[in-house]
Amino acid sequence: MASLSATSLSFKAPSIQSTRIYQVLRKPSSFQSISFGRFQSSKSLRLQISCAAKPETVQKVSDIVKEQLALSADTALTAESKFSALGADSLDTVEIVMALEEKFNISVEEADAQNITTIQEAADLIEDLVQKKPAA
């Protein structure tokens, strides 16, 4: 793993109606991060702070996606890469989610699985589930 940035700020045009704000606190691991899912501002632009998923997770997710879609190792993937832009159809997306489930030893709800369209979204969801799991 070469260069990885710990935080990322991205601005997105309004698209999602969710006002979920969640906080992720991690134990002694490398970074402590607080993530604000997507919060609504009154203006037309919505601010998304996504330092939720650790770079390792994003990296792992990218690797799995590459493997599943049989992309060459040097294909550039960013957290914002859309699966569909990488040539994945809906069946591929199901396969990706299944592979992720297995790798991270989690179980993704069907409804959530269908909402994943980017690597970032996948990584965020995984972190969320991994956090919840020990408590369960």
Partner: peptide, 26 residues
């Protein structure tokens, strides 16, 4: 979301596909 909306039937198919992959895993 920018994703294409899936029809109910498409969802059923994907859910079946997921079921098969889960069964294969076992």
């Amino acid at each position: 979301m920018g994703a294409t909306k899936l029809s109910g039937m498409q969802k059923q198919v994907l859910s079946l596909y997921r079921g098969f992959l889960r069964a294969a895993r076992s």
